[in-house]
Every structure is written in C-alpha cells, then in structure tokens.
Design a protein around this nucleic acid. Structure first.
Length: 275
DNA sequence: CGATTCCCCTGATAGC
DNA sequence: TGCTATCAGGGGAATC
C-alpha cells in the first residue's frame, strides 16, 4: 500500500532515469480502464512524441512533467507498480499498460487489484478529475507546523484517525503511517479530531514528520506488495511500532496492542499509552 | 457542508 | 486437503 514514503521512492527512481526520454508510438493499454483521463482511445496519441522534463510527487500522486505543459499522472492506489522493461520481456498477468520510450525500453504499469490509474492532460484538467486539486499540505515541508495542523483539524468531530486519512486535511498519510503517527503522539485513534490540545497537536505534527521521514530514509514499507521501480522492497517494516502488531506488547508501556475498526479502516494502537 | 457508507478488485487468509 | 466466505484498503461517489 504505497503511501507518501513509498511514492517518494518510486519518484526518486523515476527521476533518475526518465527526464529527457521521449514517449514513442506503440504504447499499449492491456486493460483500457487503467486510464482515468482522457478517454483511453486518445491516450497513446496524446502521449506520443512528448519528452519528459521532470518527475515529482504531490501527496500520493506521481507527476511526470512533459515538454508541452501536459502531465502524465500515476496513482498506484493499493497494488500499482511501475517498472522499466525491454519490449520483448514477458508480461506478467497483472500488466495493465506499456508505455514505449525512445531508448528501446518501456515503462510498464502493473496492478493486481486494478485500482491504480494513469491520467494525461494539462494540470488543470487532472486537478478537476482527481483529488489533486483539493489536497491538504505536504507534511514533510517546513510549512507543516502544529498550528497549521490545528487549523486543518479545527471543528472536526470525527475521529482523528479518519481525519489523518483525509487527503484534503493532510496529504500523503495512509493507514500504516496514520496509526504509527498517532502512536508516537500518544493519541487514541477515536479522539475527536478537533479536540486535540496544543501539546497534542505539537506531538502529532512531530509524530507525522518523524514517522514519514524515517520511512522515506528506509525506502518505504513493504508489507506484502510494495516494490520500488527497481524491484526493491522497502526496509521500514522493522520500524513499525503498532501496525499489524496487535496481540504483541507495546514497546513503550508493555500493554497488549489492540486492533479495532475506525472509519471502516483497520486501526492498530496501544490502549495503555494512547489517550 | 461534514460525516458515513458503499464500491471497485483479487490474492491471501480463516474457517469448516 | 480443498473448498468457500471474508478481509484488506485509497479514494471517489452516493447518501445521510
């Protein structure tokens, strides 16, 4: 489940290789609905001849800038994976799209669960058809302070866990890092989002930043599916304190860790030290 | 408008 | 052992 750190790893590897490359004809959609925008029929034609000028990340979106001002945006969702391959390399059964490049390779998008999407067009168009236009602040940028977090959460009555997963509140967190950040901050996942004290907001801001930046350093977390562009697993899993550790004892206070459902999502936490 | 529920998918896992 | 039911979960749409 790629969240900010996993997407960052993918972006870093794409950025080392894709700029300067030109998409050529012969791109192939093995499963047309993988294209979320525009209509799949026009996709290959619109991409052909475009040269990559840069690769960057916004929230969990991979943004590939093209020389004509358009962007090719990729969202991996749950099981999407990008990798480079030779055109004659055998395709695995989950391959959804092959995008031909001018160096006799192709950028492949595979996705077992079929949730991931490719989008192509001017930024404004993509912002209109995805959440890209309504995203909350990037948590690893300096502007992400406790007071900004407090302002984004103000007045919210729903659980803090749900608010952290809402990409319009803060962008980039998913289920793993939301649980981990709440544990580090000592805040129970069902606390009303707008009820946090200043000290708690500060601890949560710090917990989010530490959790994400450590995971970025370790190349992300590979729970089961995630692989980087180069096919590497992230090494952050041993760094997880609560996620999928229910039944084990808390590293901080020894209480048996619990699992519950908050906002329809599996939630892992310590009833002993998260208040 | 905010909060909640449902839905999309298919491999892994649990239960019998 | 083998089959079937359930689960997981990002984010968008529909609903309350």
């Amino acid at each position: 489940m790629p969240e900010l750190p996993e997407v960052q790893s993918v972006v870093d590897e794409l950025a080392a290789r894709l700029p300067g490359r030109t998409f050529t004809g012969g791109s192939d959609l093995l499963w047309a609905p993988v294209v979320g925008h525009p209509d799949p029929e026009g996709f290959g034609e619109r991409l052909e001849g475009r040269t990559v000028s840069g690769v960057r990340r916004r929230a969990k979106y991979i943004i590939i800038d093209l020389d004509d001002g358009q962007v090719l945006v990729v969202h991996l969702r749950m099981t999407g994976r990008l990798h480079f391959a030779a055109p004659d390399e055998a395709a695995d059964r989950h391959l959804r799209a092959r995008l031909s490049l001018d160096d006799a390779t192709e950028l492949r998008f595979a996705d077992m669960r079929k949730f991931g999407r490719l989008y192509l067009g001017p930024v404004a168009e993509i912002e209109a058809v995805t959440a890209l236009g309504a995203l909350g602040p990037e948590p690893l940028e300096p502007a992400f302070t406790a007071s900004l977090l407090g302002a984004r959460l103000a007045g919210k009555r729903g659980p803090i866990k749900s608010a952290l997963l809402d990409q319009s509140v803060v962008s980039g967190l998913g289920n793993i890092y939301a649980d981990e950040a709440l544990f580090r901050a000592g805040i129970a996942p069902r606390r009303a989002a707008g009820s946090l004290t200043e000290a708690e907001l500060s601890a949560l801001r710090d917990g989010i930043v530490a959790t994400l930046s450590e995971a970025v350093e370790r190349g992300g977390t590979s729970f089961r599916n995630y692989l980087s562009v180069a096919g590497r697993r992230g090494s952050n899993m041993p760094n997880l304190r609560v996620f999928r550790r229910d039944g084990e004892s808390c590293l901080r206070c020894g209480t048996v860790l619990a699992r519950t459902v908050v906002g329809g999502r599996g939630t892992h936490w310590c009833p002993g030290c998260q208040q």
